[in-house]
Write a protein that binds this DNA or RNA. Structure first.
Length: 579
RNA sequence: GCGCCAGUAGCUCAGUGGAUAGAGUGCUUGCCUCCGGAGCAAGAUGUCACAGGUUCAAAUCCUGUCUGGCGCGCCA
């Protein structure tokens, strides 16, 4: 840090925070009360970094807002990071004093390094449940969003100092396993199961449903088989275990390719022996009742019309029961500050119900968050594994890798075939991931190959390419991440200033992403940084510049690469050295 | 029928009650003697679904209508 010239009340050196504090202090000194202190960001056309609107005061004091702005501006003295504010209409606009602000930014990046944008370690635990594929089914692009968003959130919260625990809540329990057991006993092929387990399981599963249309008694048989399984029948148990292990081996390969990992892989079956306790607690509180032979928890009095189904007529469990057991187990085992459920928005009602029941059981409702997201549809309509209208994750990864490779060959990539393969995977898989985090989670997506694997504009490739150019410059400039804050006085071109400004915004965007559970804010900042860099790169030569520009620009490239890598690490975007 | 989500540029989408509503893509046009052009620059394109209301101020809040997606008892 450069000599503590900057007023800082927190231990954070983030420049935008410091500027905000400075501006707040100035406004307070000018007589603005705390409750009127609202600082906002002016729109892009306005040449200012922060603005204070005077409408509210105008109401209180019955004076024209422009007049108030004028008076406030006159009372304020020049700051350290900011210039003398100016009244523009009803606003008091605060502009940045580039040199000290940029010096602080560079110093902060230098000081924090790989932690720039992050926060100090805290003691809080956050649990993130994500991915959660079904055993015996291939992963389709439908599982992509939860897997990627969940993994990114985990990395994001770690970056912000949390202890983040990822849980893969496998769909390894439920009626479909009864069906699968019946199907395998009738039509299963041992050899095929060995060779391509998921394929074979999918085949007999689809077959089961076809046959069940002709012979509805199969459904009953399936339910009975699950009931056996739940009661601990040895034969059923053994088959189930095989299906589970074989599927997991296959799925693990995809996780590995995508850089996804979990602290715990505990499927629904894990909670099989933990459900009774919750059911007892619910009954003890008198929350449940019998209805049409099933056990339900009515929620009408609590604003939810549909009751939660606790137990089926035949006494076997439902997913809500297992989710309740899982929640209780996790709270007691990990004492988390939050549990995030990264699950599609079509399950919103389910989460409302089961969160409400937890609340009625005495748990803090603020503990549980459904991080929902929109569906992935195909142009032909809703995906359906049974009806064969589906794109498997494996084919998506293959296609992405193939396309990346093709492009690399076109561009005459220099390297061994192994390097080419590896790079193609880095580029291809990152492209897939980025598509799920560059926009908010909320919307449903219609799957489109070209859009999914885009390499232009706001895409992972654009970001990787920007990093590669930075690395290229640093390599040739023989600079090892050297950042000299004093470069701030030389970095005065519009592109240089704009780039540093963008770097200074990164921490705030990271924080916002965590607050809203929205990875896209990080992606957005990363993209803006790359765009600012590309503009800088175009107009400001680095290596061929003469001193002191050359060194100053090397510092800037170094700092930019640092921040960019922090962002890419959060997002799980691969960081190639060359491409 | 009820509930939730969405409707902003041709397409995919940002946008904290405040200033001239922004990106990407697509389209038109420039830019490789220069650190990698998967790039940069410029241009055109808007009834913010519609109708009311609240407010000094509404794409943003409220009500209603229309359109689309999802959900609503023994699947997850």
């Amino acid at each position: 840090m450069s000599k503590g010239r900057t007023p800082m009340t927190s231990n954070s050196c983030y420049p935008l925070d410091a500027l905000r504090e400075e501006v707040s202090a100035q406004l307070r000194a000018a007589g603005i009360k705390e409750e009127d202190l609202r600082i906002e960001y002016p729109p892009p056309g306005i040449d200012a970094a922060l603005a204070f609107p005077c409408f509210r005061l105008s109401q209180k004091e019955k004076k024209a807002p422009a007049l108030i702005a004028q008076e406030i501006a006159e009372k304020i003295k020049i700051g350290v990071l900011g210039l003398l504010p100016v009244a523009q209409g009803p606003y008091v606009n605060f502009s940045i004093n580039p040199e000290p602000y940029d010096r602080l930014t560079l110093a902060c990046i230098d000081e924090k390094g790989a932690h720039y944008g992050g926060e100090e370690k805290n003691e809080k635990t956050i649990i993130i449940e994500y991915s959660s594929p079904n055993i015996a089914k291939p992963m389709s692009v439908g599982h992509l969003r939860t897997t990627i968003i969940g993994q990114v959130l985990k990395q994001l919260f770690r970056f912000l100092g949390y202890r983040a625990i990822g849980i893969n809540h496998l769909g390894d329990w439920g009626t479909q396993f009864g069906k699968l057991i019946v199907a395998f006993r009738k039509w299963g092929d041992e050899e095929r199961l060995q060779e391509a387990p998921i394929n074979e399981l999918l085949r007999i599963y689809v077959l089961f449903h076809q046959e069940a249309e002709k012979d509805p008694s199969l459904e009953e048989e399936g339910r009975k088989a699950f009931n056996d399984l739940e009661k601990g029948d040895a034969g059923a148990q053994k088959l189930w275990e095989r299906f589970r292990n074989l599927t997991l081996d296959e799925i693990d390969r995809i996780y590995q390719a995508m850089g996804v990992d979990f602290e715990h892989v505990t499927g629904e079956s894990f909670y099989e022996d933990k459900m009774q306790k919750v059911i007892d607690a619910i009954q003890a509180k008198g929350l449940s009742e019998e209805s049409e032979g099933a056990q339900i928890v009515p929620l009408k009095e609590h604003g939810i019309k549909q009751p939660l189904l606790l137990k089926k007529r035949d006494g076997s469990s439902l997913y809500a029961t297992r989710d309740l057991a899982a929640a209780v187990y996790r709270v007691e085992t990990f004492h988390p500050a939050k549990i995030l459920y990264v699950v599609g928005s079509e399950q919103k009602l389910h989460f409302q119900q089961f969160f409400k029941v937890l609340e009625l059981l005495g748990y803090d409702p603020g503990l549980f968050v459904h991080v929902d997201f929109g569906l992935v549809n195909l142009p032909e309509g809703k995906m359906s594994t049974r009806e064969g209208r589906v794109i498997f994750l494996e084919s998506l990864i293959d296609e992405a890798t193939t396309r990346a490779k093709q492009r690399l060959v076109e561009r005459e990539f220099q390297g061994t075939p192994e390097e080419l393969d590896q790079l193609a995977r880095m580029v291809g898989i990152s492209a897939i991931k980025y598509r799920d985090i560059y926009q908010p989670r909320n919307r449903s997506i219609t799957f489109d190959w070209d859009e999914m694997l885009s390499t232009e504009g706001n895409s992972s490739v654009y970001i990787q390419y920007a990093l590669v150019r930075m690395k290229g410059i640093l390599r040739k400039g023989e600079v090892e991440a050297f950042i000299d804050p004093e470069a701030a006085k030389i970095l005065v071109s519009p592109q240089e200033i704009a780039l540093i400004r963008e770097l200074s915004r990164f921490p705030e965007k990271v924080r916002l992403a965590a607050k809203e559970y929205e990875p896209f804010h990080v992606a957005d900042s990363v993209y803006e940084i790359c765009q600012a860099f590309s503009r800088f790169y175009k107009e400001n030569p680095v290596l061929i510049a003469s001193e002191p520009q050359r060194s100053a620009r090397l510092t800037l490239v170094s700092a930019t690469a640092r921040v960019l890598e922090n962002g890419m690490d959060i997002l799980g975007i691969a960081k190639p050295e060359k491409m």
